[in-house]
Amino acid sequence: VGNELVSFIWDDFCDWYIELSKVTLSGNDPQAKAATQYTLYVALEAIVKLLHPFMPFVSEEIYQTLTQKESIVISEWPKPLDNEGDDFKQVDQLISMISSLRELRLSRDVKRDVPLKGWATDQDDQLIDFDAYIQQVLAHFVNFELVAMAEVDTLVSPMLSGTLHIINENIEDVEKEMTQLQEQIQVLEKELKRSKGMLSNENFIKKAKPEKVAAEKAKYEEYQRQHAVLMEKLKDLQVK
């Protein structure tokens, strides 16, 4: 139970609930701000109560400071909410979409300031109509704009109870990049072969000036380094 609670506090409340709330709290709607602040307050109060069996003294101090009430011991135990509604489902889908888009940007080396567009469909391939808040969050967190479905080339990524379709623009072409890397590797391998041949030639070592031999050795080491970097990059792309 303690591990589940810690996981909820760090992985759900801190990583997602608080972060998602920042979009509303930084907005211009006073009613939405007040509602968000109240929700965070209620959630934090419930968390402190749930922590009380594990941290009685610390939770008591936090509870009294937070609520200005007498004691956590005589407070009502938190009651579970119905989490089967559409609002809960959309938030879970939102988190899934953000995670998928972050993974896409990381795997394809697409910078945060590069805008992406697309749409989401449910398990029946029907367009999911997200509200304005979710569109704001996607724009804020992953620079992603929800647009209407279109007959364009897209990348697909699984998400909770559906599929995310990302329009294939501003995203590097993996096959093209692999071809370019292979060409660069071939050029480097030719240079490595040439340089190794020179450094293995006793006449070159004896007759060439020391600085020229040193320069060729430096070139060879640099070619090796570049070759290793490109091979690692190619390996990563092949995994994708």
Rank of each mutant, 00 (worst) to 15 (best):
R102K: 15
W119N: 02
Q136M: 11
L138R: 00
A132E: 12
I134M: 08
I128M: 04
E103K: 14
K111N: 13
I95T: 07
K117Y: 10
L101T: 11
P115T: 06
M97W: 04
A120P: 04
P115F: 02
N143E: 04
L106E: 15
S100G: 13
Q135F: 03
Q135L: 09
Q135K: 14
D124P: 02
D109S: 15
V114L: 07
D122H: 06
I95P: 03
L116Q: 02
T121N: 06
D122A: 07
L138D: 00
D131R: 01
R108I: 08
A132W: 07
L127F: 07
N143R: 02
K117W: 11
L116E: 01
I98H: 00
R105T: 12
L101C: 09
L127M: 09
H140T: 12
I98Y: 00
D131E: 08
A120E: 07
P115C: 06
Q136Y: 04
M97R: 05
H140C: 06
H140D: 13
L104W: 01
Q93M: 11
I134F: 07
A120S: 10
V142K: 04
D122M: 06
S107W: 06
L94K: 00
L104R: 05
S99F: 11
D125H: 12
P115H: 05
F130Y: 13
V114H: 06
D124I: 03
K111T: 14
G118D: 02
K117Q: 15
P115D: 06
A120N: 02
S99K: 14
F130W: 11
Q136P: 03
Y133P: 01
I134P: 00
F141V: 09
V142D: 09
T121R: 03
Q123L: 10
Y133N: 03
V137R: 00
V137L: 03
Q123A: 08
V142Q: 05
F130N: 01
T121S: 13
I98A: 02
A132G: 03
A132Y: 11
D113T: 12
A139E: 07
R112W: 12
Q126Y: 05
V142R: 02
F141M: 10
L106R: 14
S107P: 05
